[in-house]
Design a binder for these strands. Structure first.
Lengths: 235, 235
DNA sequence: GTAGTACTTCACAATATCATGAAATACTAT
DNA sequence: ATAGTATTTCATGATATTGTGAAGTACTAC
């Protein structure tokens, strides 16, 4: 009787721990974070996370066995993706718990931004107000597939890699707000650094698309209509 | 440059993984679940989770190092508690993710309830409506400290251990709804089994106090005013 | 002081997880 | 068939985690 209760509890907590184990490894967390942005192939994931191919494959297997992600084979490629939107949400809640509880997270971020001379007073709410009012040019610096999968309405897409080449596409008079995948993605930090070096007034929006969506705002999908934004209200 | 980005990412994901590691062990999860119900001493936790004392102490240390719980020493006793309400919330989101993604969780629960002959059609929303309308006697079968720390308004407290002795305190004509800590706590299951064997009409409410609170309902705190509930509206 | 209680730490063997390179598999194009 | 590409699996040594019993610490009561 009591033994059966114990067996039940043990079995249940073992199941919960499967998910804990899946997210107990930094590489797996990075892969999960990348997959929150959209489906990827094994190679793309390995490259972005800086991992070996065999390693990546094994970590993905572990995530799949915890049912956090799913795989789909198209010809030669295997495309991994989130098993469910809930997993994204769970990852975000892990992230915010870590921010809240672990001073180290805040400290590491502060050091990094300082070293990149990017410790501007990023007035988040103020920026958001400007963004909503259309008073700034909103720039999405993620790879274009990600932009196509979903972006802030009115944002223009210039992937970080093309930024130096395409500076002419950006208006010089207006402030620029760059965003990427979220607070721990470095793309927007680098973009702002480049833009400032070229004389633009640029800021970084900490939120990524996922966070934006999680706050209840809509995303736009597909190609942008024109590379140069009109001055109409954007969001 | 790229190296510095990598170092930053690695450092950040390592921090996130600290929390993952903390919740990657079934015993630690059980301790965390218990602590969601309220503060406990090491001995109480060890006993409830069926763990050795040394083991419990070490697991608690691990949880503390991930800043999920905190300890306070009063004289001879060390009382552990949740570091923050957010941690409870995170635990609940882990639990619901596991329910959603892992068929095994549902299967294990189904088997357990079946083996306890408790697989009644527990019409959750219907029960909740009855509970709100005060059409049933609501029975809290958790230890009385937990009742005192917070319970459903109008619920009466009879800890499972005292239930057999105190059956006279329960009205025979009305339906009884027993609840405990939540869907994976066995107290209410056992209570319903005892009550049914004694001729009562009893059901189990899957929600625990935490879930109830998370749904936005208020809890009552302190002692109950009378051991026998009046027939007025309760919630 | 001594005894007793609550808890922590240590040492350790059993087990699990890790990342890596090499081999195997699965599929496409020719 | 053959070559080539994407991915998985295997084998392995290095490292980390697990739970246990024994020893140590911290505090209280007398």
């Amino acid at each position: 009787m009591a033994t059966r209760n114990r067996r039940y509890k043990t079995a249940i907590y073992e199941q919960f721990a499967r998910i804990g184990k899946a997210i107990s490894n930094p590489s797996r967390l990075e892969l999960l974070d990348l997959l929150c942005q959209g489906p990827r192939t094994v190679e793309a994931l390995a490259k972005e996370a800086g991992l070996g191919l065999a390693n990546t494959s094994q970590q993905l297997k572990a995530l799949r066995e915890a049912r956090l992600i799913s795989a789909e084979k198209n010809g030669l490629f295997v495309t991994y993706q989130m098993a469910d939107q809930r997993v994204c949400q769970f990852f975000r809640s892990l992230r915010s718990l870590a921010e809240a509880q672990l001073a180290e997270v805040r400290e590491i971020t502060r050091c990094f931004l300082e070293s990149r001379e990017a410790l501007q007073p990023v007035d988040r709410e103020g920026l958001l107000a400007k963004v909503r009012a259309g008073a700034v040019t909103v720039l999405d610096v993620r790879p274009s597939e990600e932009y196509r999968a979903g972006h802030l309405p009115g944002a223009i897409s210039i992937p970080l890699k093309e930024l130096e080449r395409r500076l002419a596409d950006l208006p010089r008079q207006r402030e620029i707000v760059a965003y990427c995948r979220g607070p721990y993605c470095v793309l927007a930090v680098e973009a702002v650094q480049i833009l400032k070096a070229r004389g633009f007034t640029a800021f970084r929006l900490e939120d990524g698309v996922q966070d934006w969506q999680a706050r209840g705002y809509r995303l736009a999908v597909g190609e942008e209509s024109t590379p140069r934004p009109r001055s109409r209200r954007q969001i």
